[in-house]
Structures are given as C-alpha cells and as structure tokens.
Amino acid sequence: MTNKITHLVKLSVGTETVDDLAAWQGQKRVQTADGYPRHITRMWPRRESEVLSGGSIYWVIKGVVQARQKILRLDEVIGQDGIRRCAIVLEPELIRTAPALRRPFQGWRYLDPKDAPPDLSESRAKDDDLPPDLSAKLAEIGVL
C-alpha cells in the first residue's frame, strides 16, 4: 500500500526573492547539525506520514508561490521556553515553480498535490527573478 502524499505551503516572511530565501537558509543558525536547512514551527503536522511520503514545502514569497523544497524529515526541537516545536528539515535545493497567487495566512497549510503549481522547466528556472509585483500580476492573469 502506498501512502498518500501531502505538501505544505508556507509564507517566507521577510524575503523578497527565491535568492533571499536561499541566502537565509545558508546561515548556520537555521541549519540542522548535519547541515540541512530547516524551518521551525509551533505545530506538528498531524498528517506526518503523508508529508514524509514525498511531500514538499511550497514557499510563498510576496504573495506568490515561487519555489518548493522536498521535505526530508521532521525533528523535535525543544525551545528555551520548554515548548516542543517541529523542525521541518529540507533538501537544500530550491526548485522554482510556476507562480501561483496565495493570500496571506498564519503558519503553514496542507496542499493537495493536484493543487500544487508545477515546477518550472530547467530553462525557465534559470531565468532572472521578476519583480514580485509583476510576478503576482502575471500569476493573477494566468500567465506562467
């Protein structure tokens, strides 16, 4: 029996571009001891097995889904306040996706694979980032 795959979608707060996200994840303080980027969140996914069956985290930058990363594992992290948190451990490679508008939300949300934006082709993934407002406008009218 194969497990259903579920993705996560998350706002990348404070970043302007995919390159900004990559630079932030390159900092030692946001990496695991084995060197993988991670994102720490308060909530542990209840659908853990679905997320770990091939799921990715889709990053919303300036109101537009622009990239994804494969989720490798979920690590428990206990903060200085004693509260248990979830570290979403990620593959270092950021895969650019077709732009998809996303309204602001708190935390992360589940994303069904059928609703996930497709990856950009290799040739398009190497294109320069469009300004965030232009990328959002193109996504709004359905131009990839």
Results as ranks from 00 to 15, higher is better:
residue 80 Q to K: 11
residue 85 R to I: 03
residue 113 P to N: 03
residue 68 R to T: 00
residue 122 E to M: 03
residue 50 E to F: 10
residue 10 K to E: 02
residue 104 P to T: 07
residue 110 Y to I: 06
residue 48 E to T: 15
residue 7 H to F: 01
residue 48 E to Q: 14
residue 31 Q to A: 08
residue 93 E to N: 11
residue 43 M to R: 15
residue 1 M to V: 11
residue 90 L to N: 01
residue 78 I to L: 06
residue 28 K to T: 13
residue 8 L to W: 00
residue 15 T to K: 06
residue 47 R to C: 06
residue 88 I to L: 11
residue 18 V to S: 11
residue 30 V to Q: 04
residue 51 V to C: 07
residue 59 W to L: 05
residue 39 H to W: 11
residue 19 D to H: 09
residue 68 R to H: 11
residue 97 T to Q: 02
residue 131 P to S: 03
residue 56 S to V: 00
residue 46 R to M: 07
residue 118 P to Q: 03
residue 137 K to F: 12
residue 110 Y to H: 08
residue 126 K to R: 14
residue 127 D to I: 02
residue 26 G to M: 07
residue 64 V to T: 15
residue 45 P to V: 05
residue 141 I to P: 08
residue 130 L to Q: 09
residue 50 E to Q: 14
residue 32 T to R: 04
residue 86 C to A: 14
residue 125 A to S: 15
residue 116 A to N: 09
residue 4 K to P: 12
residue 104 P to I: 01
residue 36 Y to S: 08
residue 127 D to E: 15
residue 15 T to A: 05
residue 135 S to R: 10
residue 12 S to Q: 11
residue 143 V to F: 13
residue 118 P to M: 01
residue 95 I to V: 15
residue 17 T to E: 07
residue 100 A to K: 15
residue 93 E to S: 10
residue 127 D to K: 04
residue 140 E to W: 01
residue 64 V to W: 01
residue 133 D to H: 13
residue 47 R to I: 05
residue 71 I to T: 02
residue 126 K to G: 05
residue 111 L to W: 12
residue 119 D to Y: 03
residue 118 P to V: 04
residue 27 Q to E: 10
residue 94 L to E: 04
residue 49 S to D: 15
residue 112 D to Y: 08
residue 137 K to I: 06
residue 56 S to E: 00
residue 143 V to K: 10
residue 24 W to N: 08
residue 49 S to W: 07
residue 115 D to V: 02
residue 131 P to Q: 02
residue 16 E to A: 11
